[in-house]
Amino acid sequence: MVTVDAAERATEVGPRPRRRRGIRQTRGYRVFQVVNAIILTLVVVVTLYPFVNIVARSMSHEAYIIAGQVNLVPRGFTLDTYQLVMSDPLFWTNYRNTVFYTVTATLISIVMTTCYAYVLSKKHLKGRTALIGIAVFTMFFTGGLIPNYVLVTSLGLKNSVWAIALPNAINVFNLLVMKAFFESLPVELEEAAAVDGLNTYGILLRIVLPLSKAIVATMVLFYAVAFWNSWFAAFLYMDQQELWPVTVYLRNLIAGATGAENIGAIAEANEVQAEATLKSVTIVLTTLPILLVYPFVQRYFVRGIMLGAVKG
């Protein structure tokens, strides 16, 4: 796979030695190197600062926050607000929902995307161009919010996981990436399997999929992150707070909307002044899982997007 090699080179190994252009380095270039390092350091600082700030706020005492004195380190260290948020049963219900929705929707998505992509990768399929065209067309022209809402509602999917999973089951970008991958597999392999008496499903399940573990894993990650982060579908279609994912919980907290009074009541009952820290704590707790897995899965994402770009 030439393209993956290119991808790896770009992101992991760094540029090839040719960057050493010429033996002598001009003074101007040395100055540039220093300036460049400073700029990139600033990029890192600007990217990371908000995270550090939120963590600092989440562990600070309310009074210091209101006084506007919290930047990089917590002032008046306390974990009371963490206890507070974690003692809200709705928070845990919503967190469980997020996990449940993510797992279910990802499963549905991966099965549907694999099937569609596999079919599209067969060059002898009649109407293949049209099927691809239909998929690509939806990238640029969609049904629109209102018609979608009317459709989902009239199908009776409201307040169920289906409302989240089905309308977004196939991401066209992912579909094209998978199709490109299947196309890159040697045809002879499947022909040999057919000669050995496997039917179409047997070929897919026992020959193609075992060879596609890497791409399937990447797709699972893509979908899982998208569903984990999604909030709008749930916001639109779920009208009971026990059904929300945790993103909607956070949304209502920052918007000061209904559902947020729950945690407010808990705060009052415990006589904790926590209005400002409350949001920070919830942000930290919802971001944490992503931050924890991020270092391990990052390179698969990079590889996936590269595959799509080069081939799709």
Binding site: T11, E12, G14, L40, V43, V44, T47, L48, P50, F51, N53, I54, R57, I65, I66, A67, G68, V70, V225, W228, N229, S230, W231, T247, V248, L250, R251, L253, I254, A276, K279, S280, T282, I283, T286, T287, I290, L291, Y294, P295, Q298, F301, V302
Partner: peptide
């Protein structure tokens, strides 16, 4: 590699989290 890894990170956050962070940074305090 470090700069790359750090700069990719915000891409993986939910839009709700981004909005919440923006609100915190821009709040009166």
């Amino acid at each position: 590699r470090f700069v790359q890894s750090v700069s990719y990170l915000p891409h993986f956050l939910s839009i709700v989290i981004v909005a919440a962070i923006v609100m915190q940074l821009l709040s009166m305090d």
